[in-house]
Measured scan of single mutants.
Amino acid sequence: MRSPRTRGRSGRPLSLLLALLCALRAKVCGASGQFELEILSMQNVNGELQNGNCCGGARNPGDRKCTRDECDTYFKVCLKEYQSRVTAGGPCSFGSGSTPVIGGNTFNLKASRGNDRNRIVLPFSFAWPRSYTLLVEAWDSSNDTVQPDSIIEKASHSGMINPSRQWQTLKQNTGVAHFEYQIRVTCDDYYYGFGCNKFCRPRDDFFGHYACDQNGNKTCMEGWMGPECNRAICRQGCSPKHGSCKLPGDCRCQYGWQGLYCDKCIPHPGCVHGICNEPWQCLCETNWGGQLCDKDLNYCGTHQPCLNGGTCSNTGPDKYQCSCPEGYSGPNCEIA
């Protein structure tokens, strides 16, 4: 077999650049994923090309098998939009790539799955459409700058595939050579959905506090709520009108309100015997008056200043008058 000629994957630097851009600016990249293909086995019993010639040398006159050299087999892949009637021409609109030389006439790579040499990765940054057309071609490398490479066999497949970690196996069982391969579509990290176009990256910072479920939905951490999980859940009972919080379990009062639940107004400074319904009010309790509710309107009842059976009459805020019984006098009937 001729010395292998290595063929790198098509578009790999571009895919790395796209992945970097997506990581830095995830909101700009609407989708991100990759179409993967792995060659599993190849069977070319006679070492022939599609045109019937030998990959190298002439045929044995007896059994008609190619004798001089085995094929240097590598694969090309073209991925494009779905076609009900597949045409070989036209651009590979979803991507293209190739393997290096991975074997001779016949080989089996099932035991070495995950080997990069027999895998082609086609990254995409558009919403995966699920339906596709795939062209797979086996080629013989001439290892010659003058002699062109020659095609051994080709296969085409049109179908639908959803993103999954599971592989789907396909076979080419007609023509001079048979080969088996597997395909799958996977979303990149933080991308979800059938189109790999739903973005969700767990975070716990100013912009949100959430994890992501298997469908890419945000699940808020304990103590947080809202579409972006950036609204803290305040202390139970915290007034929704007069209290708020920036951290879970907190209850910060608005100006003019106080209390554990921010449901108590702050009265006017200096208010003595008054209450409030709104901040800075001083609504006097019964029998109290004045701007600060510090004037006693029922001095008689509060202090009972009249002595010796005198009768007390309220005459104004903090004022009274005693009517003394016979034989007593003085402001409080204290003089006998």
Rank of each mutant, 00 (worst) to 15 (best):
R59L: 15
E278D: 09
N197I: 08
M42K: 03
P123S: 05
L20V: 01
S158P: 03
E334K: 09
R231I: 06
S141F: 12
G33C: 12
M160T: 10
Q254P: 09
S131Y: 01
Q254E: 13
E36A: 04
N143T: 13
I120F: 09
L122V: 06
P202L: 07
G216C: 03
I151F: 12
G95D: 06
P100R: 11
A31G: 02
K264T: 06
D189V: 05
P331A: 12
C324G: 07
G103V: 12
G310R: 07
T87S: 09
N143D: 13
G175A: 07
Q281H: 07
D144V: 11
V136A: 02
W257C: 00
A31V: 06
D149A: 14
S125C: 11
C78R: 00
L17V: 05
T186N: 04
R201C: 10
G33V: 01
S3Y: 15
L260M: 08
A232V: 06
D318A: 09
Q258E: 14
L40V: 01
N115D: 06
G30A: 00
S125T: 10
F75V: 14
D294E: 05
L37W: 09
S142R: 12
C29S: 05
K264N: 06
N332D: 14
G256V: 00
L17Q: 04
F207I: 05
G290S: 03
D188E: 04
R64S: 06
P279L: 02
P325L: 14
S142G: 11
T106P: 13
L170M: 01
C333F: 03
L260R: 09
G97R: 13
D263V: 04
D63G: 12
C253G: 05
K80M: 15
C265R: 02
G95A: 10
R5P: 15
T311A: 11
Y299C: 11
F126V: 12
G270V: 09
Y74C: 09
C238F: 06
E137G: 07
E334D: 11
N314I: 11
A232G: 13
R252T: 13
C55W: 01
N53D: 06
W224G: 12
L37M: 08
G301R: 02
G270E: 05
G259S: 03
N53S: 01
C187W: 01
I183L: 13
L260Q: 09
E153K: 07
P267L: 07
S84F: 08
Y328C: 04
P148R: 04
E81K: 11
Y132N: 00
I152L: 15
Y320H: 06
C234W: 14
G159D: 11
A232S: 05
R165L: 14
K264R: 12
N308D: 12
I275F: 00
A111T: 08
P4Q: 15
E222Q: 12
G208R: 04
R184H: 01
D204E: 11
E38G: 05
S131T: 00
S10Y: 15
M42L: 07
P325S: 15
N173K: 10
C78W: 00
C282S: 00
I39M: 03
C322R: 00
F199I: 02
E228A: 11
P267T: 06
S244C: 04
K171N: 08
P325A: 05
P305Q: 08
L170Q: 03
G56C: 13
V86A: 12
C253Y: 02
I102V: 01
N108T: 15
Y181F: 10
D140E: 06
Y320D: 03
G301V: 00
C312F: 00
F194I: 04
K246E: 14
C71Y: 05
E70V: 13
S93N: 07
L79P: 02
C238W: 13
T315I: 14
G89E: 05
Y82N: 05
P148H: 07
G175V: 11
N60D: 15
N230I: 13
M42R: 04
D213Y: 02
H157P: 01
S10P: 05
Y132C: 03
P61L: 13
T174M: 13
S141P: 09
E48K: 06
T311P: 07
C54Y: 10
C55S: 03
S150N: 07
C78F: 02
E137K: 00
K80Q: 09
R252K: 07
L292F: 08
W257L: 05
Q258R: 09
F194V: 14
G195V: 03
Q254K: 02
S98P: 05
L21I: 15
I39L: 02
D204V: 12
E285D: 00
F179I: 09
C293R: 02
E137Q: 07
E278K: 05
P61S: 14
R184G: 01
W128L: 12
G226C: 10
Q182K: 03
K27N: 09
G57C: 13
Q147K: 06
E48A: 01
L247R: 14
K319R: 13
D250G: 14
D318G: 10
Q254R: 11
L109I: 06
D296Y: 00
K27T: 05
W139L: 10
D116N: 08
Q50R: 04
C245G: 10
Q43E: 01
S244P: 10
K319T: 05
D72N: 10
M225L: 11
M221V: 12
G274A: 01
N197K: 05
T6R: 15
D250Y: 04
P129S: 12
A211P: 10
V146I: 09
G316A: 04
K27M: 12
L49V: 04
Q34L: 09
A19D: 02
R59W: 14
S10A: 01
L14R: 14
Q168E: 12
S96P: 07
M160L: 13
